[in-house]
């Protein structure tokens, strides 16, 4: 079953540089899925911190994506590389507390193409759900 139909709560952190029209483009999915999808635009994916990812999981996300610029295209030169390291580090952290590492995933936007956050998010939602609802969900306020 794909992630959309599996009823998962998805949080997407993404670099705003990949889609200048992100605020408009993401609305269709926001309307369709309501609280089940949450977009968190970042000025640069290098701004992501373990804390953000942990907080997203804590507040009920079953799957968290971090979408970065393509390799070599970061506005701040190496933000996407740093985001990759932080996601890997956080994956280690959540595995230590018994959560599956794949609940966090880093996606690089395709190079050379104009990116629409709506299309990109829909692609992600249509992928096979590898994880079920998070055991954290419902246990926190």
């Amino acid at each position: 079953m794909d992630q959309k139909n599996a009823g998962l709560n998805i949080s997407i952190f993404f670099c705003q540089q990949i889609d200048p029209n992100q605020d408009v483009n993401r609305r269709a999915l926001e309307r369709e899925l309501g609280n089940r999808i949450r977009f968190f635009p970042l000025p640069c994916s290098g701004r992501i911190d373990s804390l953000h990812l942990m907080r997203a999981l804590e507040s009920g996300a079953d799957k968290v994506y971090v979408i970065t610029c393509p390799e070599g295209a970061c506005h701040y030169r190496e933000g996407n590389m740093r985001a990759r390291k932080r996601v890997a580090y956080t994956q280690g952290l959540i595995e230590e507390i018994g959560l599956e590492g794949e609940r966090l995933e880093l996606i690089m936007a395709p190079a050379g193409l104009p990116v629409n956050i709506d299309e990109l998010a829909r692609d992600l939602l249509s992928s096979e759900a590898t994880t079920g609802p998070s055991p954290v969900r419902g246990k926190t306020a």
């Binding site: 540089q17 992100q22 605020d23 635009p41 000025p43 640069c44 701040y76």
Partner: peptide
């Protein structure tokens, strides 16, 4: 440490 324009502000 860098400071950059916030695209969310522009939007």
């Amino acid at each position: 440490i860098q400071k950059g324009f916030n695209p969310s502000y522009k939007a």
